[in-house]
Design a protein around this nucleic acid. Structure first.
Length: 495
RNA sequence: GGCGCUAUCGUCUAAGGGUUAGGACGAAGCCCUCUCAAGGCUUAAAUACGGGUUCGAAUCCCGUUAGCGCUACCA
């Protein structure tokens, strides 16, 4: 399953694998301090794929330990984004409900002497230049304080943070095998005595995250590469808490074309998944696009169904370098995302697409005429030229509404020769014809062209222009059928 | 500054010692054609730099450069 290098021997390795598969648990842990970032969405997707691939459990955990920065709006937008992706999860937790667990974990570590109280006042000077030019590691006065004095000052009500007592001068290195980045190692002497508990008694991210990961029996931590360096600290916490150490898989970051980290302030809407939803993306198409950023099935496949993605996903295929989201100032959509969306939109089952198209029309204030079956057929005919769901309401408007615009090019087609006159004649013939199918309309139109001595193209292109207001679109005869005899006759006789 | 990580066409990536360095998006051209797409064919486009190791390096090692991350009582 997880490509253990030390697979061991024969039957026993097989059994061990089954055991691990059974207990495989992953989590996605966003903090509600902003909208759902596309990088976070990708992390969620990779976790989900890994869990589904191996029959594991996908856990959603809201990491809301930073009470000052959490907002309900942000929480709502994260759920909006996640729901839009449509993948779901198996279990849901909220860190703010688990405060006691975090504090108990910190207390246990403190009582073992693996952490200590630091009474240094918070950030007196203010700015972050407080480290001088060397790295800050620890404050010896606090680290070496006797238990008696520490207890006395705490009892006296003096505020303190609880810091992890990172081993010093032992030559120890923290090591782990990352499923993506391979062997990782860092000297304890280079790790600072990080905080576990703030002076207000609230856990820090590191503590809360590890306490919860241990308690929830997370087997694999799959997260952004920005946590790669933090992992050394986390391993120290797991050890101190007496917990099993999970496996780690870090994912390369998503960055802007200039290589900078994506941020809302600097890059605007491209960083939010709602942008793609609002731009008319099919959810799965966007999932597919995100999967291709930093991961490859290695067989040149790109357009993949959810099942294919699930079957192919493995950390061996994950890259180690950051992936650029290729957007431009004037156009926030990555061209490849758009292409992939068009591929899915044009080939997915029409029955699945129809409700999405209907929703896109609804938000443009359009209620399609006729019934469900007609609608699905119309959607199926016109989608072959569309890129996003929004196209149904814009380029596809004439199929669903009567008030559509005529482009200058379309007008030009209608003004060619005696096109208008012939189209009106065609309308009369179609109104009287026995059948009204693609084939019968084509026969009727071509016969008229021959009779009047004009090229069929004049009538064909003229019809498309009159019926849709555009010079581009599906085969004109498919257009006739999709719009329906009644409306075709009405539109052509009024040209 | 310290520590960690990374480096293949413009972008996403394949090739984990031997290939004319492959595919996709985007771009250009041709074919097809009732328009526009799609599709087919074709073209331009990459191994950051310098040293090693080796018969042979995009691939392994070292260095340089560049980028990213961590270095908070943020996550």
């Amino acid at each position: 399953m997880t490509r253990r290098r030390n697979a061991g021997t024969g039957g026993r390795a097989g059994r061990a694998d089954i055991l691990v598969v059974y207990m495989l648990r992953v989590r996605f842990a966003p903090s509600p301090t902003g909208y759902l970032h596309i990088g976070s969405a990708r992390t969620f997707i990779f976790n989900w794929l890994f869990a589904r691939r191996h029959g594991g459990t996908m856990i959603l955990r809201i990491d809301d330990t930073d009470v000052d920065r959490n907002t309900q709006a942000s929480l709502d937008s994260i759920f909006d984004g996640l729901n839009w992706l449509g993948l779901g999860w198996d279990e849901l937790y909220r860190q703010s409900d688990r405060l006691a667990l975090h504090q108990d974990t910190a207390r246990a570590i403190l009582e073992k002497g693996l952490a200590y109280r630091d009474f240094t006042p918070a950030h007196a000077g203010g700015d972050d230049a407080s480290h001088g030019d060397g790295p800050w590691l620890f404050n010896p006065g606090m680290r070496e304080m006797t238990a008696e004095e520490s207890d006395r000052r705490a009892a006296a009500g003096e505020p303190f943070v609880v810091r992890f007592r990172v081993p010093r001068g032992t030559g120890r290195r923290v090591e782990f095998l990352d499923l993506v980045y391979g062997a990782q190692s860092k000297a304890c002497d280079d790790i600072e005595d990080f905080a576990l508990l703030r002076s207000n008694g609230m856990p820090t991210y590191h503590l809360a995250s590890c306490a919860d990961d241990a308690d929830l029996r997370i087997s694999h931590i799959v997260r952004g590469q920005d946590h790669l360096s933090n992992t050394f600290k986390h391993i120290l916490i797991f050890e101190a808490a007496g917990a099993a150490i999970p496996q780690f898989a870090h994912l390369p970051l998503l960055v802007a074309p200039d290589g900078a980290k994506l941020s809302k302030r600097k890059h605007g809407p491209v960083v939010s998944v709602t942008t793609y939803r609002d731009a008319g993306f099919v959810p799965h198409a966007y999932v597919n696009f995100l999967c291709l950023l930093g991961w490859s099935p290695k067989d040149n496949r790109e357009k993949m169904a959810r099942e294919e993605l699930t079957a192919a996903f493995a950390f061996e295929g994950v890259n180690r370098s950051n992936a650029v989201v290729n957007f431009k100032e004037e156009d926030p959509i990555d061209p490849k995302a758009l292409w992939l969306n068009s591929e899915h939109l044009r080939t997915m089952p029409a029955a699945e697409l129809a409700p999405m198209a209907r929703a896109a029309l609804a938000s443009a204030g359009i209620t399609p005429p006729y019934d469900e079956a007609w609608f699905a057929d119309a959607v199926d005919v016109i989608r072959s030229r569309f890129f996003t769901l929004r196209d149904f309401a814009t380029r596809g408007r004439a199929y669903f509404a009567e008030d559509y615009e005529m482009t200058p090019e379309a007008l030009e087609k209608l003004n060619q020769g005696n096109a208008r006159e012939l189209l009106r004649e065609l309308a009369a013939r179609l109104a009287a014809a026995a059948d009204f199918t693609e084939q019968s309309v084509e026969a009727e139109l071509r016969a008229l062209a021959v009779e009047r001595g004009v090229k069929a193209g004049l009538l064909i292109n003229g019809s498309r222009a009159a019926l849709t207001g555009q010079t581009v679109g599906p085969s004109a005869f498919a257009v006739f059928a999709a719009i329906g005899r009644e409306r075709v006759v009405a539109r052509l006789s009024q040209v």
